[in-house]
Design a protein around this nucleic acid. Structure first.
Lengths: 107, 107
DNA sequence: TAGTCATGCAGGTCATAGCCTGCATAATGT
DNA sequence: ACATTATGCAGGCTATGACCTGCATGACTA
């Protein structure tokens, strides 16, 4: 799967975005910690984390029987660089055109 | 569905991202134009465009029997503002920590 | 060494996403 | 008026995603 694609797919699920948010707040949490308060089984959380790992959004480190999860900020930054900023460049122009269209529509 | 959610979901599909890209290159295309070269039926493209519209990423305008599609740059910008930039703030710190972890792993 | 704790692995269910075909409708051109 | 063109709507098929339960494994701990 293309890099960009796996990242967007991974970010598509709100639970996964929440997991990422939690890791940004406190990096290196275990699976057990990440499960706390989430309304689903440990196995489901684990599957979500697998998806995040496959997209390279997090990295895993084992400490004994504990699995630690670390954010990798690179892919999101790359999405921004490669995809969003490209659109940003045209943003003001497009925004202007869009508003003009709306105004035309109002007449 | 939450705003952020519908936007991320809409962006999750590569065909939809390509449609957006095409509209950024040439705004206001008809359904027929957007179908050209895509390896799927018109109806499928139409469904993808519906998803983009539901996420407010594009707006529709009718001209006779033709349906024109216009990019709305706002939601992507908001995703950036609300979600990506928040993470950017911690990016350098996290990146540093991440590298440190990798180096620890290498020992 | 025996128990418990953190996790993996396998499989099954259910809803939904993505795609199609077939037919309907409304605008346009001749 | 009629044929053509641009699109919508309905339904069905299939793959996949998100979730679960049940059992297995390997690491700590008493």
């Amino acid at each position: 799967m293309k890099d960009t694609d796996s990242v967007f797919k991974a970010l598509a699920d709100p639970h996964r975005r929440e997991l990422l948010d939690r890791l940004y707040e406190s990096n290196g949490q275990t699976l057990g910690e990440l499960c706390e308060g989430l309304p689903m089984a440990r196995q489901s959380v684990s599957q979500h984390l697998d998806v995040l790992e496959a997209a390279n959004l997090i990295a895993i480190e084992w400490r004994g029987r504990e699995k630690l999860h670390y954010v990798n900020p690179v892919p999101i930054h790359e999405i921004y660089e490669r995809w969003i900023r490209k659109h940003e460049a045209q943003r003001l122009a497009a925004l202007h055109e869009f508003k003009t269209k709306l105004e035309r529509g109002r007449k």
